[in-house]
Design a protein around this nucleic acid. Structure first.
Lengths: 169, 169
DNA sequence: TATTGTTATACTCTATAACTATA
DNA sequence: TATAGTTATAGAGTATAACAATA
């Protein structure tokens, strides 16, 4: 993380020119701010990143999924998953469970410790997320989420109510 | 970049659970999608990333700024700037100009080549950005930018973009 | 003393390619 | 042949710590 603003008084120098009208620019700025807020409010306490948190949620909500499926879900290559799973397993949060039907495959599951940790982390994340978006009222926040969703999920059917669905195994 | 969706027909497996209500999650997804779109539409042609593009814009819009000022603007450490400036200078896009008043300092400037390249890249970026946000009409797009800006710039006085105003300058 | 640019080093994230053991 | 997991390797990107030159 870069140091806190070293010169709060001085002119902020930078004009952004035409980027002020580019959605991608604002998206990047907002995401960077969100990441930092997460790191400060959750990561510093729980030693976790948004990416790792997302993986835990994916495993928790889709128990037994394979590493390849997790890779697809996280939108990264299979090979990139290995070390992450190693780490989560090393922390005792998840386990690789050999599939009885396909001996090439592992089924990923939360451990009891992992499930407990995730609930704790999740509470922190949700609180942090509310603080981060405190400048928006509930309507604005919902609007923002809806607009963002349409950007990255063109087939989006207004997804708010998806929470709570298990892994439909 | 990960490979294209390997199983278009099969169920997408993953339920996101409580993350569906976390703004940070949607922010991350949207930003990732924007980054990929940029890489595909601009990066593949111009060999540039959103970060490098942002640096070029910062230098172009604030000619003569120091590397430290650029680091503050990009919100990274001074030391992280060095190699990037090396690369941009190596490509002939910018120059390190020794400051006559402070011999520790370089003033960063675009070269003629760099200025030309930036204009070309900028056109591509703006076009790409419009394609990426094509699912939103002008009002929605402006609303989205306004909401995002309020997230990362708490002092923001609702910049240009207001509901109903297109992106015209 | 503080600042500017720099180097050395390390860590994270991610990709590609090749390997293995299965299927 | 194709798939699941793995390893080796490489390249961004970024941080910290220390250093020289300069202020």
């Amino acid at each position: 993380m870069p140091p806190d603003d070293p010169n709060p008084g001085k002119p902020a120098v930078v004009s952004h020119g035409p980027m002020a009208d580019e959605l991608g620019f604002h998206l990047r700025c907002a995401q960077l701010a969100a990441f930092k807020h997460f790191a400060h409010a959750v990561g510093a306490v729980e030693g976790i990143t948004p990416g790792l948190y997302g993986m835990l949620q994916a495993i928790d909500n889709n128990p037994g999924l394979s590493q390849s499926a997790l890779a697809v879900a996280m939108d990264v290559d299979r090979s990139s998953i290995v070390k992450v799973v190693d780490r989560l397993e090393g922390k005792g949060l998840i386990v690789r469970d050999a599939s009885p039907t396909d001996r090439r495959r592992y089924r990923l599951h939360m451990t009891a410790t992992g499930a407990r940790a995730l609930r704790r982390i999740q509470d922190a994340v949700i609180r942090q997320d509310r603080v981060f978006s405190a400048r928006l009222d509930d309507t604005e926040r919902a609007t923002l989420i809806a607009l963002l969703t349409r950007l990255y999920r063109p087939d989006s059917e207004t997804p708010t109510a998806r929470a709570g669905i298990g892994a439909e195994s």
